[in-house]
Design a binder for these strands. Structure first.
Length: 484
DNA sequence: ATGTGC
């Protein structure tokens, strides 16, 4: 690997020039602290420079500090394509379409919930189904599921599963336009229809966390986001569109494969299978992707409904007293049409974010009104050992990274390797000693998600804070975690 | 990530 070709632009930005390998249309940029750059897998460099070869790509192919190897694109990849010449790529969005995080605030403090935390964990585990193949409590008919696909969280609002405040604090208000259920396969629908309100498996989780007053980096912004108590209880939910989005990605990869000769796209890696944005198949995938994105917003909303129910039961308290409100809900795996300035003129681009978060700065109309003068909340999920971070979007991101920032800590270790280091039950004991109670239906797999399998979240967050594409607001530490 | 793979 010709790492000597990397050009250090600033302390935490590394550029890979177009002469790194043949076919690169734009440079690649890897965002990383100097400390972490050597740890970035050669395959990630391979993947992000492959992305830089894709037709219609603009400015840079970007890799966030939490980047690691994914299907075709690295997880942590951001790439924007011109509508006229560009492509849409399922590998640039991810199999789990609109995997994302919902962050909730509460009126409770650690002292208030500690005596009942075991009961709370059990109740949450009962209320929110998790694990591979899990199904939800909602029995939906085809017509209801079609409405979910096309109307997203508006369906939840009309059916008593969401409040006005929830809808206003979700990216895109929980509904992507252009969602068209007629381009979604029966197979995808049959996999998705019984999975709404379920957590899934792998790195998906439901976590109860504490906002440590010593690590509120920006008190004024934190207060704006509803963090206003010492040791306040927060809840975060990390999950996506389950088998539904996975099937849509699979379906359209197959369609794109079938038409690949006709498109004549020069794609370096089979996993980068794409279609022109303007092709009929490309348009259909975008509409189907929007259906999966909407289902994922609904999935997280239904889980929130379950969380509220569980808290009400355990604390025998009213909705108003508990104050469980949505701080924000971000998509981590999605593609969106957005406008940027390229070579002095405004252009609409299809921005692919795969394991990356939108990070819009103050003033943007897409940000909820009550946050608009501050910037968009950027929710960064960590491991069950390290907790998570809350950041805020900036104008720098709008200019430098197509309004994007990081999404998590980033894996450093394969699941297999992580399982060899420690057994799941031993890890569970170790976490309990640290004050973190973990419940899972798959104890043998727990070590796959151990803290040691991830980069240090504070280091990757510091890198984006330093670059300026989002700024630190608060840090949350886990006390209860449910893993699928 | 995923009714986890040739």
């Amino acid at each position: 690997m010709k790492r000597n070709k990397f050009i250090q632009i600033t302390e935490n930005i590394w550029e890979i020039p177009t002469d790194f390998k043949p076919g690169m249309r734009v440079p690649a940029r890897v965002l990383s602290s100097g400390e972490l750059i050597d740890g970035i897998d050669d395959r990630v460099i391979d993947q992000i420079t492959n992305v830089a070869c894709l037709p219609g790509i603009r400015r840079y192919a970007l890799c966030m500090p939490d980047g690691h190897v994914g299907y075709g694109f690295p997880i942590g990849g951001v790439a924007a394509f011109s509508v006229d010449e560009g492509i849409i790529s399922p590998g640039g969005i991810g199999f789990d379409i609109n995997c994302g995080i919902r962050l909730l605030r509460t009126n409770l403090t650690y002292d208030e919930i500690k005596p009942k935390q075991e009961q709370l964990l059990d109740e949450l585990f009962r209320t929110v189904p998790s694990g591979v193949g899990s199904s939800g409590y909602l029995k939906l008919n085809n017509d209801q599921f079609r409405q979910i696909m096309q109307q997203g969280v508006n369906w939840c609002r009309e059916n008593g599963y969401a409040g006005y405040h929830d809808v206003e604090h979700i990216e895109n208000r929980g509904c992507l336009e252009n969602a068209d259920a007629s381009v979604v396969s029966k197979k995808a629908i049959s996999r998705g229809i019984n999975q709404m309100g379920t957590l899934g498996s792998g790195n998906h989780y439901l976590e109860v966390e504490i906002a440590d007053p010593k690590n509120i980096y920006d008190k004024a912004t934190a207060r704006r986001f509803g963090i206003n108590l010492d040791n306040q209880v927060m809840v975060s939910v990390h999950c996506g569109s389950r088998g539904f989005g996975h099937q849509i990605a699979t379906d359209y990869l197959q369609v794109f494969d079938k038409y690949s000769k006709q498109y004549g796209l020069d794609v370096r890696d089979r996993e980068l299978m794409s279609a022109p944005i303007k092709s009929e198949e490309g348009k259909r995938y975008f509409q189907a992707m929007a259906c999966a994105a909407n289902a994922a917003f609904v999935n997280r909303q239904l889980i929130v409904h379950g969380i509220r129910k569980a808290f009400r039961k355990i604390f025998s308290a009213s909705e108003a007293d508990l104050g469980i409100e949505t701080v924000y809900d971000v998509a981590h795996n999605i593609a969106k049409f957005e406008e940027y300035e390229i070579d002095g003129r405004r252009e609409t681009l299809l921005v692919h974010r795969k394991g990356a978060t939108r990070s819009f700065g103050p003033g943007r109309a897409e940000i909820p009104e009550d946050y608009r003068d501050v910037g968009q909340p950027v929710i960064v999920g960590g491991s069950m050992e390290s907790g998570s971070a809350l950041l805020c979007g900036t104008t720098v991101a709008d200019h430098e990274t197509f309004g994007s920032s990081l999404h998590g800590a980033g894996r450093t270790m394969s699941r297999m390797k992580a399982k060899k280091i420690m057994r799941g039950d031993a890890l569970q004991d170790k976490l309990r000693q640290k004050g973190i109670l973990v419940k899972t239906g798959y104890i043998r797999g727990l070590a796959e998600e151990a803290g040691y399998a991830y980069k240090n979240i504070d280091m990757v967050v510091d890198a984006v804070d330093n670059i300026g594409i989002s700024r630190k607001v608060a840090r949350f530490y886990p006390i209860l975690n449910i893993k699928g």
